Computed example of a mutant assay.
Amino acid sequence: MNDLMDWFRDNLWAGWGLLAMALAAAELLTLDLTLLMLAAGALTGGVVALVLPGLVWLQITVALITAVATLFLLRPTLLAKVRASKGYRSSLDSIVGSKGRATAMITGHSGEVKVEGQVWEARSFDPTITIEEGEEIEVFSLDGVTLSVYPTNRPLTQ
């Protein structure tokens, strides 16, 4: 165990590399690019460790500066490009077309539904229709955090 610690102390670049790989792998679970930016910081810390192995304070400083810079400068640009790409649908947009159930009476102005296990504010797609509690609904659109819904057991009138 002591030999392993000595080896890592002498080859700190490997520790930085393992950290970068772990963060990059964890990014695959989140897909929000935050962990990837932290992995970039760890990678630059590893490069500094490879070139200047004795300056741990410089390795940490470079890693932190890189991580913060990529988080605030690169990540927003990359997220904007991803969200603007053809065919992108956010998780909120994917709720359109889902079916659910009214958990309170729904009017053209207010109401509440449960869709995919989550409770949402809702209003009737057709303001002249009232949807009773317990009726099945379909989500037509999303306006902020309010769903525009219509009962599935009635023909669409609008």
Rank of each mutant, 00 (worst) to 15 (best):
A40H: 02
G108C: 04
L58K: 03
T30F: 13
K86W: 03
G97P: 06
T70I: 05
R123T: 09
M1P: 04
E112A: 12
K81Q: 13
I60A: 09
T61R: 02
A63M: 09
V145Q: 14
A14Y: 13
E27N: 11
Q118D: 14
A69Y: 02
S110K: 07
K86E: 15
H109T: 12
V145A: 14
D10N: 14
T157K: 15
L78E: 06
V149H: 02
A42M: 08
R101N: 07
L58T: 04
L12V: 11
T44W: 14
A20C: 10
M105L: 06
S94W: 03
V145W: 02
A40R: 00
I65H: 07
L19A: 15
L29S: 12
P155T: 12
E112Q: 15
V82S: 01
A14L: 15
S124I: 00
A102V: 02
T66F: 01
S110M: 04
R89A: 04
A26I: 08
N153S: 14
S91F: 00
G144W: 15
I95K: 05
A69W: 07
L52H: 07
D143L: 10
L23M: 08
F8T: 00
R75N: 07
V119H: 06
A42Y: 01
A24G: 14
P127R: 06
E135H: 14
E136I: 09
K114A: 10
I95Y: 02
L12H: 03
A14P: 01
E121Q: 13
V113K: 05
G45K: 09
A122D: 10
A102C: 08
G144H: 14
V68S: 05
L71S: 04
G97R: 09
A26L: 13
S124D: 10
I95W: 01
N2D: 15
D32K: 06
W120Q: 08
S148D: 06
A67K: 02
L55K: 07
G15N: 08
L28E: 02
G117K: 04
E136Y: 09
E135K: 15
V62P: 01
G41A: 05
L33A: 09
L73Y: 06
T157L: 15
I129R: 11
V48M: 08
N11I: 06
G41C: 02
V145H: 11
A49Y: 00
K81W: 00
T107W: 02
A14K: 05
A80F: 01
L78Q: 08
A67S: 10
I65C: 09
V62S: 03
I65S: 08
V96S: 02
P155D: 13
A104T: 07
T107I: 07
W13D: 10
T30K: 06
S90G: 12
S94M: 11
A26Q: 04
S85Y: 01
G117S: 08
V113N: 07
L50V: 08
T128G: 11
V82A: 06
T66Q: 03
L35F: 12
W57N: 04
Q118V: 14
R154Q: 12
I131H: 01
P76H: 09
E136M: 13
E132G: 12
A26D: 05
K99Q: 13
T152R: 09
E116C: 08
V62A: 08
L38R: 01
R101G: 01
A26K: 04
S141W: 03
D126R: 05
P151T: 05
A24C: 11
W13P: 00
